[in-house]
Structures are given as C-alpha cells and as structure tokens.
Design a protein around this nucleic acid. Structure first.
Length: 919
DNA sequence: TGCTCCTGCAA
DNA sequence: TATTGCAGGAGCA
C-alpha cells in the first residue's frame, strides 16, 4: 500500500528548539532547532515514503481568529534564535526534496487534516509526523501518528492507551481541558485525568454537558461555570478535513535530494553526521551513531513492518541474545574482554539498590549487539537458566578487570548490586546519565528513556511495557525471558549508543569534559561507598522522642480547640482559614499565590500578637512536622540487614550541580530549634567510634568574594574576620567591627545571603521587617562599599543573556532558558538563578572534588574511618576514637585544598558521640 | 489510588 | 518580589 508522510513542520521546529541545548555553529548562528528538524527529516526519508509533505503555518488570520477573538492572543512572538532558523530550515527541507505546503487562511493543522483524510479515502496509508497531541483526533484505520523525536507511534488503540479516550472523542477531551498555549480556557482544575474520566463516564462532551447539573464538588462548579465556552472550544480544537487544497495527496511526490546544496548547508551548520551520510556513509554507520529512528519498539506496536526489516542496520537490532548456555556465555565474556568499552546493566527485583536482588545482567559490546543473561527468573515454565554463581564467576574477570572500561546509565545502582554479590566493578569510567547532566543540567530528566528520545530519536521499551504498573506490576523475575531480553539487552545497547552520541559533545567543550571526567565520574564510586556505609540511627531514642512529641501535640490540640471554641483539624489549612479569618475575624494579611488567605508561618506570625491561637498552631505544626517527617519515619528507613540508614544521593539531581538526597532525605534534618536538634542526637556512632563533622565556613560568600574580586570583601576574608560583622561595619558606618550591634550584624547577614539569591529591596524589607525605602538604602550602601559585587552581578546577568548560560569556577554550565523570556516574572526568576548558580554550583564542585580526594585517602586507612554523609557544605564521618585527630587533620587539609580561590577556604571540624555533638 | 496544593525542613 | 532540593498531609475524584 502506498504511504504518505505529512510532517507538522512548526510543531517540530518549536519542540526541537525547546528540547535541545542552544547549539550554535562555528559562526555563532543558532542551530539547535534546525539540528532536531534535520535529523527528523533524515529519519523520515529512511523509511522511503511514496509521498510526503512538510507543512507549515502561513502568516495571517485564520477562521479560528474569526470564531474567537482571543485565539492565541497570549502566544509570545517567536524567539529571535528560533526565527533565525526558519529560513535555513526551509532551504534544507527543499534541498532534501520535500514539497513544502503553506496555505494562507488555514493553519497547518487543517492542511494536514484535509490531506490525511483525502489520502486515506484513496487507499493511501497516512503517517502524520508531529509532536502535537491534538492530532490524535485524526487517528483511524489508515492514519497513524508518529513523533519522530520520541519515536512514539499512535494507532487507534495507542490513542486510547495514552489519553484514555478514543480518537473520535479527542476533540471533546481537548475542549474540556482547554489549551493555555492557544489561550483557550477549559474547565478549571480539569486536567487529562478528569477529562478522560468524564468522557468515559458520560460518553461524550454532550453527555458531560448534560450531566453538569448533578456534578458534585468544586470541580462540578467549575464545569458549570465553563459550560458556555465548551461548544466553541470544541470547534476551535477540531482540525478541519475539508479545506480547499491546490494539490491532492498523490501529487505530493518527493523530488530527489539536491546533494550539492545540502552539502553546503550541512557544512555551514556543522551537521557532521548528516554530511558523512551524504558522502557515502552507510546506514549502519548512521545507526551506530544513533541517528536512525529505532524501530524495534515502534515495530512491535504497529504490528511489524516489512519496510524496516529490509534495513540491515535495523535487522541487527532485533538480534538481542538471551544467554542460557555455557558456550554462549563464554563467547560473550570473550567479546566483552576484547571490547574497548562494554555497556552493562543489571536487572533486579527492587528499586532500592541496597535491598535489590539480582535477576539478570546485560552486556553490549557494539551498537546493536547486546545480550541478556537471565539468572533468577522464576515463573512457571521458565526455560533453564545458567547457574547463578557460575555466571558471576565467569563475569568477574571482565567486570573486575581494570583494563576493560565500562559504561552504564546511572551505574551507581549497578555498582551497588554487583558489590552486594561480591563483585567489585573496576574501571567504571563512563556514565550516560552524567554525560547528559553535565551537557545540560536543566534538561528535565536524565533517565535513559528520555535521553534515548532526545539524543537518538529512539523509543525504548519501558519498564512498564514489560512489568506493567501500579497494583498489577510484576517483578522482573516474573517476566518471560523473551520479553526480558528485549528490554534488558536494549538497555545496554542504548546505553552504548547514547555514550557514542553524548561523549563527542563533551569532547567539543573541554571545560565540560573536565567537569564530567574529573569530578562527576570519580564521584560515582565515592557516593556508592558513602551510601553503602550508611549511618547508625538510634531507633529507641527516636521512639522516645515520638512519644514525647505526641503528648505535647495532644496538649496543644486541646488548648487550640478551647481557644477556637470548637474542635477542628489543626493540620488542615482550609479549616484553619475558616477559624482564623471567618470565625475569629483575624486579619488576612498574607495571600497564597492563588489569592486565598494564607495560613503559613509568616501569616500566623503576623497575627500572633492579636490572639493566642496562631502561636499555638505554629508550635503544633513544628511538633507535627518533626514527628511525621523524622521521629516516626527514620526508624522505618533502617536497613534490616545492616541496621543502618542508607540514603540515596542523586548526582544528577540539582541543576546547579549540588547533590540531593532521598529515601530518606538526610540533607534536611532539623538543626535550628532545640526540638529539632534532638533528632540529630539519634544519629550516633557505635561503641568506640565518634562522629566527626567537617564543614566549609561561609563557602558561598567566599566564592562571591572570589568571583567578584571585590577588594573589601576579599580583605575581610583574608583578614579572617567575621564577614557579617565586617559588612555591618561598612554598610552602617559603625567605624570598627567591634562597634557593630547585634541588630546590625543580623541585618548585614540578611543582606549578604539575600544578595546571593538575587533578592530585591522588597524581599530584604520583608525579611528584616523594615520599610522598603530603608531596605533600598541598605542595599545602596552595600553596593557603594562593595562595588565589585555590584559589577559581578551585572556581568553575570549580561553573560546569561548573551550566552544563555552561566558557569562555575570549574566550567560547569547552567543553561537559563527563561533569561530572554518576554514574561517578566520568568525572566526575573532566571536572572536570580543566574546570580545564584555560579556560587551554589562552585561550592558544589569544590565539595565534590574534596570528597574524591578524601575518599582516595580513606581508601588506604582500612576501617578506621568512613565517610557517611554529605550535606552541601559539610562532610560527616564515623571514626575510631583514637583515629579522630588524624582524620580531622587530613580531611581539613584536603577540603581546604580542593580549590585555590582568591580567599582562603576555612573548614570547621567538630567531634562527638552523635551528630548534634559534632557541631 | 493518583494528583494537586500547601506547608516546612536543610544548605 | 530570595536559590536549590525532598517530603509530609489534606482534599479531591
């Protein structure tokens, strides 16, 4: 059957622009969106469609503007960096041989809709290539959607699976939700879940409208409020299939490509892969580089496909091997041993690396060549697997061989699992998650599925695809070997391909490569060791505290009910709102972002002098928080095997380069109040050991001094002064630091910290409880005394605007997508982040470097000391009592030497029987 | 059960 | 109208 591909050009252009880092060519012209579109088109051509067209919007009004005056009224103009890519895009599209369609008075959507339906009637199979979910309404037998950037293919069943409604009901679904991008308001609070549920329950939009009077709750009111708009919404979101077209589907013939023009354009924009392919590179080469859209997944979903099977590179892809014989195992270990880089990936039965049991293991040695070695699948009728210990014994010489380099995706997990099975993986030297993180930390996710979609245009088999999800999810050991192999071997394969796609990008930026290679990669093993070490938590102590807190909460609750004159839940902001502002008529001084009277800490503080209840609520909340989050939950986190708490550190967690911690989060254990500090007393050292805490003093302010080179600030740190006191002396003209009052020092501290976060006079006035004009005067005085700081901040904002990113002392980048936004709030937010990121990020770089050095030293010290926690500017250790002095001296030295700034780095160390005492 | 909102802990 | 995180409970459907 002949096939027509209709490409939604505008959709791809926008999506590529936002999905890819702001790449530029050698001349500094933006190329990111272009790159994405070109790869997509090349992938489309590989599928050899019989007919194709690239459809874009024509300028000017359309019938939708006539229907609805505000249609797309809040859509910002196209960003300059994107507009600059439109011309070159059309040149490339034309040179590739695609007909370009641009019809005045109708949107690209309607052109596509009309052609798709007409072609379908003529017996032509249609693929609509778009990233826009609205097109799901066109799907029917003979018309499928494909998103080449993510590789997903949608047929009618796929639409139902993805949206929860049939293609014919997509317009109803969209009408309910509305579309903020096009300025079409739907039903407030009605998102994808609610819309699908209603349509499922009432059959259609008309059914929902008919049922509106009986709908309960707030959302029912919202629906009734929106009723008048819904028919118009449906009309606006309906793609027309009957517009007049000068060309019929069968006239959309691909011309041959114009190789000379393409060569010039590819060279100009630096598309080396495309250029190589043009000059005789094979399809297999291209597949190895990951430029081809994968088909294994798409294939399975579209019920197979002869066209793809004809391509040797793709056929190779299906050859994932399930290893169940000794001969196969020996062959694969030999290949791995000989490979210059082996991708490996473990499959287990749990997410927690410190509890998970190994179920299987996969290896990839070349793109497209991967195997899965099942070890512990145990469903009825499962084919025999190789002996668990025999396989590990065979793999050990490879995994522990320092001469064989390994690559993985989030390999810290795999390292944990292998270590717990007695294998110490050596030379784990590449990690695709970290490659992605260093290349662009602000990319929303760094998981393999997202990376494969973003960088390879490849749709991976997801975990849910083989295991299901929610209550019906099964363990990986229950998955049939055939499916398990398709999933697991693909993981290793894709990891290897991703590495080949990502590493060259790092190599092109030496500073980024250094951050990746010298900081992040060495840190993987260090973090794995810290997590494995864990920290000893005294569960009995926490239980006592829980009990005490519960008693005090009960007392507070009784008093609060008495004060309010009735019983209510102290933990419900809504009920509290009613009591405080409606019944007690206290003034609502603070609003939530949604305009509700807030009951947050600030709001309660503000009215605490008018009534006793707010203070009581604040006390209660403090107690409830401690109990709910810490004293009750921490004991549950103790690993039964080790008797200790093992957090998980996320190396690609915070965009600035900081680590984050979860399960449990050990980076937000209370410290500021006495009750909070008691919790730290439950973090203890075993008999004969001590807790040692070493933290950087004022590290971010020191980095600000370094970056700004401000003489006053640098001098304060070089002189070893109390920097807040010194600042106060300067700003308030106290004469000497000794003459500074406590109040002045507090204000100076607020200024110092506020500036690092890009705070305004408004924020400072609120923080200090002073008038805005006064706060403005303080800030002016500060900048007059520390002009270098002001210049640094201006420079940073400028750099962010010009380059689209800021960087740390070590060259780590943070892209700020909103820095040129027309939306003033977003832009201001990005500017604040731009100021903060170099300081927060440099501090993160420094402590990461220190951790690597300290770990290297600890490695030679046996079990006398171990690193057990990191809290942004603090490293915590557990050490033999007699070893403490050595540890403090050696750690302090290494932490201070982790960076050579214009000001000294100072480290404070504390020792105790628990974490509280060590401060 | 999953989703959103509000709240609050740390550096 | 102060940065970066994680995580709890309430309310809702």
């Amino acid at each position: 059957m002949p096939r027509l591909v209709l490409i939604d050009g505008s959709s791809y252009l926008y999506r590529a622009f936002h999905a890819l880092p702001p790449l530029t060519n050698a001349q500094g012209e933006p190329t990111g969106a272009l790159f994405g579109v070109v790869n997509m088109l090349r992938a489309t051509l590989k599928e050899k469609p019989d007919y194709a067209a690239f459809v874009v919007d024509a300028p000017g009004r359309t019938f939708r503007d006539d229907l609805y005056a505000d249609y797309k009224a809040n859509r910002p103009p196209m960003p300059d960096d994107l507009a600059a890519q439109v011309g070159p895009m059309c040149e490339i599209v034309a040179a590739l041989g695609f007909p370009i369609l641009r019809e005045a008075g109708v949107e690209a959507d309607d052109v596509i809709g009309t052609l798709a339906v007409a072609a379908c009637r003529q017996g032509i199979e249609v693929t609509v290539s778009t990233g826009d979910k609205d097109f799901a309404q066109l799907v029917r037998p003979g018309i499928t959607l494909v998103n080449t950037m993510t590789g997903s293919v949608l047929d009618p069943a796929g639409v139902v699976e993805k949206f929860g409604v049939a293609p014919e009901r997509i317009v109803d679904y969209l009408a309910l939700m509305g579309d903020s991008v096009d300025n079409v308001p739907g039903v407030e609070k009605c998102g994808p879940k609610t819309a699908a549920k209603w349509i499922d329950a009432y059959g259609s939009l008309d059914g929902v409208i008919a049922a509106a009077p009986e709908m309960k709750g707030k959302i029912g009111e919202n629906l009734r409020a929106a009723l008048g708009r819904l028919p118009l919404n449906r009309e606006l979101v309906t793609i027309r299939t009957d517009v007049a077209m000068p060309l019929g589907p069968a006239e959309l013939v691909l011309r041959g490509r114009d190789a000379d023009t393409l060569r010039g354009l590819y060279a100009r924009y630096g598309f080396t892969q495309a250029l190589r392919e043009l000059d005789g590179g094979t399809a297999a080469d291209a597949a190895a580089e990951g430029t081809l859209r994968n088909t294994a997944a798409g294939y399975a979903r579209s019920g197979g496909g002869q066209a793809e099977a004809a391509d040797p590179a793709l056929a190779a892809k299906g050859e994932y091997r399930c290893v169940t014989t000794r001969e196969d195992l020996d062959a694969w270990t030999a290949r791995a041993k000989a490979a210059e880089l082996v991708a490996f990936d473990v499959e287990t039965d749990a997410l927690d690396a410190l509890r998970a049991r190994l179920v299987g293991l996969s290896l990839a040695v070349q793109p497209g060549e991967a195997c899965y070695i099942p070890l512990a699948h145990d469903y009825p009728g499962c084919a025999p697997q190789l002996d668990f210990d025999e396989v590990l014994a065979a793999l050990r010489p490879v995994l522990e061989d320092p001469a064989v380099a390994k690559v993985g995706q989030h390999g810290k997990y795999d390292l944990h699992v292998m270590r717990r099975h007695g294998i110490a993986v050596r030379n784990y030297s590449q990690d695709t998650m970290l490659e992605s993180f260093v290349l662009n930390s602000t990319a929303s996710r760094h998981d393999m599925d997202s990376l494969a979609a973003r960088y390879l245009g490849y749709t991976t088999t997801r975990y849910e695809d083989v295991c299901g999800k929610g209550a019906k999810q099964i363990a990986f050991s229950q998955v049939e070997l055939e499916h398990a192999t398709g999933y697991a071997a693909e993981d290793a394969d894709v990891t290897l391909r991703l590495h080949r796609a990502l590493h060259p990008r790092l190599e092109a930026e030496p500073a980024l490569l250094a951050v990746y290679r010298d900081i992040e990669v060495p840190l993987i093993e260090v973090l794995a060791r810290i997590e494995a070490n864990g920290v000893l938590v005294d569960a009995e102590e926490l239980r006592r505290q829980s009990h005490d807190l519960a008693k005090r909460m009960h007392e507070a609750e009784q008093k609060a009910h008495a004060l309010a004159g009735r019983a209510f839940s102290l933990e419900s902001p809504k009920q509290l709102q009613a009591i405080l502002f409606d019944e007690l008529k206290l003034p609502a001084l603070v609003k939530t972002p949604k305009g509700q009277p807030s009951t947050n800490e600030e709001a309660l503080e503000a009215i605490a002098d008018q009534h006793d209840l707010p203070r009581l609520i604040l006390d209660y909340r403090g107690l409830a928080k401690l109990r709910g989050t810490y004293t009750d939950k921490l004991p549950a986190s103790i690993n039964p095997d080790t008797g200790r708490v093992h957090t998980s550190y996320h190396q690609a967690g915070a965009a600035t380069g900081r680590l984050s911690s979860s399960d449990p989060n050990l980076q937000n254990i209370p410290i500021r109040t006495e009750d909070g500090r008691r919790i730290r007393r439950a973090f203890v050292a075993p008999e004969g050991r001590r807790i040692v805490a070493c933290d950087y003093s004022q590290i971010e302010l020191r980095i600000m001094a370094h970056l700004s080179e401000d003489p006053g600030l640098v001098a304060a740190f070089e002189g070893g002064m109390d920097v807040h006191r010194a600042t106060a002396a300067e700003v308030f003209g106290a004469g000497s630091p000794e003459a500074v009052t406590g109040e002045q020092r507090r204000a100076a501290k607020a200024i110092n910290f506020g500036l690092m976060y890009g705070m305004s006079a408004f924020g400072l006035s609120r923080q200090l409880g002073i008038a805005r004009g006064e706060a403005q005067d303080y800030i002016a005085a500060y900048f007059a005394r520390y002009p270098g700081v002001r210049d640094f901040m201006e420079r940073t904002r400028e750099q962010a605007r010009e380059r689209g990113y800021v960087e740390t002392v070590f060259g780590r980048r943070l892209y700020l997508n909103d820095i040129t936004s027309r939306n003033q709030g977003l832009r201001a937010g990005a500017e604040r982040a731009a100021i903060n990121a170099p300081m927060q990020g440099t501090a993160a770089d420094i402590i990461k470097r220190a951790m690597v050095e300290v770990d290297r030293w600890l490695d030679g010290q046996g079990a006398r000391a171990a690193m057990i926690m990191q809290v942004h500017d603090e490293l915590v250790f557990e050490a033999d009592e007699g070893f403490v002095p050595t540890l403090v001296a050696e750690v302090t030295t290494r932490m201070q030497a982790a960076a050579a700034l214009r000001v000294p780095l100072v480290v404070d160390a504390g020792v105790g029987n628990n974490w509280d005492e060590a401060h």
